[in-house]
Design a protein around this nucleic acid. Structure first.
Lengths: 144, 144
DNA sequence: ATAATATACTACTAAAGTAGTAGGTTTAAT
DNA sequence: ATTAAACCTACTACTTTAGTAGTATATTAT
């Protein structure tokens, strides 16, 4: 059970945008180079993120991407849902009718707990939190 | 990000074994029928579980499977690890050398938190817990 | 002994998902 | 007009998943 590259790349790209203070947009190729992500692949991910309302784009020369809302308003759970689909450990959690033994299935309750634990972590974190952590980290590295 | 059938089927099969009090072993085809799992597929899963030391088998006529240890000593995290491989959100959590930016990667920390949350849930539950929950559930259903 | 019954083992497969690649089209600034 | 960017669609190699199939081996009952 592993995370796909979509969410990982996506969040790293968003982080780049969040750290790109100033008015001028950031280009996919700049992000891709800095984060070592295939440009063409990142293109697709950015398109998904745009659909999710996390970023906005400017076409043409001098174009690129910008965050569509403030970093503090971008929760990681929402980005995850957008790029990876909702984290459901088993289908019957989303749709009870899928399994006849649902009503007294104890394993279902296990997966529910797992799912809840994951969602709570991602629900509690915003892109802004990551920006701040990254800043702290850099200061720490500088001191050394 | 979804759970595979392996772990789900596996735990349900173990639950059947745990509830099969008495000395005689339980056959794969009995478990498969009761839990609606392909016999041939379950065969493979049981073989993996045997390798993991969770069950023991008796060959031949009147053979079948038994738990290899007490239900209270079978932690769900161990069953999960056995059937699904360890839950690692990203490879770099297991092997730092896989990525050069590991040292100050803030997204890595996110995935670590997620991974920890999942592991804690599964670490805290044993097969015995499920047996008891199932029993409670049945009593509850009976009252209605 | 042998028939019956169960696990054990190995190989194969259809379908879906992952992580891209490729190439052309549209949009906007200079 | 040219250029540089996003936008869009299709394709593909690879891996994983969830099985199926068939044979071999071990044990028990007769």
């Amino acid at each position: 059970m592993k995370l796909s590259t979509r969410t990982r790349y996506g969040i790293r790209a968003l982080l780049e945008l969040a750290e790109n203070t100033g008015d001028s947009p950031l280009q996919i190729k700049v992000i891709g180079k800095k984060q070592d992500i295939s440009i063409k692949y990142l293109e697709q991910l950015m398109s998904i993120l745009k659909g999710g309302g996390f970023v906005r784009s400017l076409c043409g020369s001098k174009g690129g991407y910008l965050l569509a809302k403030e970093a503090k308003d971008i929760k990681l759970i929402d980005v995850f849902n957008c790029l990876e689909g909702p984290f459901v450990t088993v289908e019957c959690l989303a749709d009870k009718s899928l399994c006849s033994r649902t009503s007294d299935c104890v394993t279902r309750k296990v997966w529910f707990k797992v799912q809840k634990a994951v969602n709570e972590v991602l629900e509690s974190m915003s892109l802004q939190d990551l920006v701040e952590q990254a800043k702290e980290q850099r200061e720490l590295n500088y001191q050394i």
